[in-house]
Amino acid sequence: MNCSFYRSLRNNISSAWMLSCLLFVMTIPLLIGIGLFLKSSLLLENNSILTLLFSKTWKPLNQNFGFYPFIISSIWVTLTAIVIAAPICLLTAIYLTQYSKKYFLKIMHPVIDILAGIPSVVYGVCGVLIIVPFISEIATIFGKHSSGYTILSGGIVLSIMITPFILNILIEIFKNIPDELQEASLSLGATKWETIKFVLIKKASPGIISSIGLGISRAFGETMAVLMVVGNVAKIPNNVLDPGYPLPALIANNYGEMLSIPMYDSALMFSALILFVVVLFFNIISRLIITKLEIY
């Protein structure tokens, strides 16, 4: 009887431990959200949220906090990165799982992991040394003058950085599609390409969406590498060859520097809040799309 008492006690304790860990994990994002909101409330009390989001003037000394250029820069950089990375990752994943030999995939796994493990600042340095001059050259060919510190440079660096994350998910997804599904399509006389196009990609679509969603979230918040190549000019970019100033760069460049300016602290917290909300939004949207596609 004693023995069984201890067993059930241990059993209860272990589940309590797991529950508390779960609660801990769940509370952190909530606390961060609340914290950011409280910290930025000073700014929100003095300005309407619409002015903050859509005003183009960023003159902290005059108490003009228009986040529009930063938001637009962030969107441009993120979109550029996704537009470059998503198709490359999709085609790579399909090739690795459907065409190449098994051992090649085994070799590629550590390569992809290395790509994921390179520190952000190293990507930044490579960007400054290689991509920035390259873009500057390209711009001259098209008859434009550009320092090379542009949205496009940021997008390219970012696309390389998010590739391993998207690619790893996509490889898992394509590997987990049962062989029989492919066999079914082939035995109906479909070619391999038709099978991939009509069946495999369709089957993988929830996973493709979620991997891109994750890529967007990562790209939107990535700071250091982007900050080093994107130019950091608080103006609305007209095209990808203009410099930009994404939100994370704004925070990283200024936090702790100019906090004597009234409300500046609160403004930076507000930009963090925007980042937080946008990433949350993308996660929710991709979740919704996934549940809609997963019925097949």
């Binding site: 082939l186 109906l188 369709k202 097949y296």
Partner: peptide, 20 residues
């Protein structure tokens, strides 16, 4: 090969309906 396969209908152990 696609013409050869088209001459045969295949039914596997578990049903694998296409994702449609």
């Amino acid at each position: 090969i696609t013409d050869i396969r088209r001459k045969m209908g295949l039914l596997s152990q578990m049903p694998y309906p296409l994702p449609m």
